[in-house]
Deep mutational scan, measured.
Amino acid sequence: IRCIGVSNRDFVEGMSGGTWVDVVLEHGGCVTVMAQDKPTVDIELVTTTVSNMAEVRSYCYEASISDMASDSRCPTQGEAYLDKQSDTQYVCKRTLVDRGWGNGCGLFGKGSLVTCAKFTCSKKMTGKSIQPENLEYRIMLSVHGSQHSGMIVNDTGYETDENRAKVEVTPNSPRAEATLGGFGSLGLDCEPRTGLDFSDLYYLTMNNKHWLVHKEWFHDIPLPWHAGADTGTPHWNNKEALVEFKDAHAKRQTVVVLGSQEGAVHTALAGALEAEMDGAKGKLFSGHLKCRLKMDKLRLKGVSYSLCTAAFTFTKVPAETLHGTVTVEVQYAGTDGPCKIPVQMAVDMQTLTPVGRLITANPVITESTENSKMMLELDPPFGDSYIVIGVGDKKITHHWHRSGSTIGKAFEATVRGAKRMAVLGDTAWDFGSVGGVFNSLGKGIHQIFGAAFKSLFGGMSWFSQILIGTLLVWLGLNTKNGSISLTCLALGGVMIFLSTAVSA
């Protein structure tokens, strides 16, 4: 259960009878995928790494000078000259100064003066180019299975845990398959586009800190620079940016070097996208990844198990997540596992009318040892309800109150669905055939309105939902006002479609 501690969480529900669903994975976010007769899966884009970055340009932001020398000439005696002028490691300046009897010249006039100092770069920052084909995306998957609280967001041991898996995709191999043991396998067909235009970005490294910066900004930095990788004795261009020549006297000129420019660069980098280094690879934390999940090989585990009949206890007080759902960790005293956990939410304890829904599909106890633990997640209705676990006299209950409203949740879900469709863009549509167009249209309606429909009408039977949709269509056909007619027709059509397409 990876997503319960992530604030940016998206719930995606598969269409009834569908074998695939489109998701948008982004750094700092987590996606929970639910479908009829399929286990619930949490998917998170953990890291995006980039390798084989080529150094484009380096800037010196802290330097020192040494070996200063000057040469001067009297008027009419030609130009002052130093051998160091031809050495690229030196920074030199030529000027004219007033000369006369007082400073060793027989004539009054302008004399030539040249001053040089050896330039040494102490600290530099480097910009590297990123090729999209060198990106690698690491995705962690977790099935809502027989897990306890100690396994949440624990990325170790996934090789031997059938509840978890790690997959890596690249532009050259965008397809992967996550093996989930008894739950089958989940196929991923990803489109490795981060949403960032790397043709316009460089990877900047300064003092063990890293950013993504725009090329134009990078090339306009007014500091000494050299092109390409460091060859040991780089040729620094624009050395004068960190060196200041003071007022010249008759035979000498003082040279000083400016202080470190790291603070000024940090100020200019305010708002830039931060990154990290992992050995020789860069780690990015921006952008998104679009994936199509193929769920035809994914299956529920323990459908044929019998119900657990022994007593359950709450190991922890049920807690609310950031998303309005409830996490419950229970301990089973029996030894008759594997068995299914009898769990439901009810409005009252007399009729036990089921409300809400299970995020953890078909929760089971897989071990036959005593005191096995299991964590599950529920989506309670707004208002008061009861969490009921167990059967008969051994069942345990917990009162729950959820604040908020169904309308607010439906609106929030619609906005999130619209954002998801905007990110998917043209990849969500198939114009290759008439059937493809209608299929894409259905998927689009489901992406945007599916979660809201589930919130508003999830407790009704599909037949009642179709009746309401048919009534809206009838009202649309018999209303003389054009805008009201079109609105009723659209709402009725969407409702009829979703009542037959969205899983219960």
Rank of each mutant, 00 (worst) to 15 (best):
I1D: 05
C3G: 04
V6K: 02
G14E: 09
G17T: 01
G17P: 00
G18D: 01
G18Q: 01
T19N: 06
V24Q: 08
E26Q: 12
H27G: 13
A35T: 12
A35L: 01
Q36S: 10
P39W: 11
T49V: 15
V50G: 03
N52D: 11
M53I: 03
R57P: 02
S58L: 00
Y59S: 02
Y61Q: 06
S64A: 13
I65V: 15
M68L: 12
D71Q: 09
P75R: 01
E79I: 11
E79L: 03
E79D: 15
Y81I: 11
S86Q: 15
R94A: 14
T95R: 12
L96G: 03
D98C: 07
D98P: 03
C105V: 03
G106H: 02
L107N: 04
L107H: 07
F108R: 01
G109Q: 06
T115P: 03
A117C: 02
K118F: 03
T120K: 05
S122W: 14
M125N: 08
G127S: 01
S129D: 09
I130C: 06
P132F: 09
P132N: 09
N134P: 02
Y137A: 02
L141R: 02
V143N: 08
Q147S: 06
M151K: 04
I152M: 03
I152A: 15
V153E: 04
N154D: 15
N154F: 03
E159M: 06
E162M: 10
R164S: 09
V169R: 01
T170V: 03
T170I: 05
P174V: 06
A176T: 06
T179K: 13
L180D: 09
G181D: 08
G181N: 14
C190N: 09
P192V: 04
M206P: 05
N208H: 03
N208Q: 14
K215P: 15
D220A: 06
P222M: 13
A227C: 01
A227R: 11
G228I: 06
G232S: 12
G232Y: 04
P234Q: 13
P234K: 13
E240R: 00
V243I: 10
F245P: 03
K246E: 12
V257G: 03
L273S: 04
E274L: 03
A280P: 14
K281P: 00
K283H: 12
F285A: 04
G287A: 15
H288E: 07
R292V: 06
R299V: 03
K301L: 05
S304R: 00
S306Y: 14
S306G: 15
A311C: 08
F314N: 03
T315R: 07
P318S: 10
A319Q: 04
T327K: 08
A333Q: 01
P338V: 05
C339N: 08
I341S: 04
M345F: 14
M345G: 03
M349V: 14
M349G: 11
V355C: 07
R357E: 05
N362K: 11
T366W: 01
S368C: 14
K373T: 00
M374A: 14
M375L: 15
E377H: 05
P380M: 13
D384W: 12
V388I: 13
I389V: 12
K394H: 12
K395I: 05
I396K: 06
I396W: 03
H398G: 00
H398K: 00
H401A: 09
G404T: 04
S405C: 07
I407F: 10
K409E: 09
A410P: 05
E412S: 14
A413Y: 11
G417M: 12
D426L: 00
D426V: 08
G435S: 05
G436C: 00
V437W: 01
N439P: 00
S440I: 05
S440K: 04
G444F: 07
I445P: 10
H446A: 08
Q447V: 14
F449Q: 12
G450H: 06
G450C: 11
L456S: 04
L456M: 15
W462K: 10
I468M: 15
I468T: 13
T470A: 15
L472A: 13
L475F: 15
L475K: 10
G476L: 01
G476W: 08
S485W: 09
C488W: 11
S503A: 05
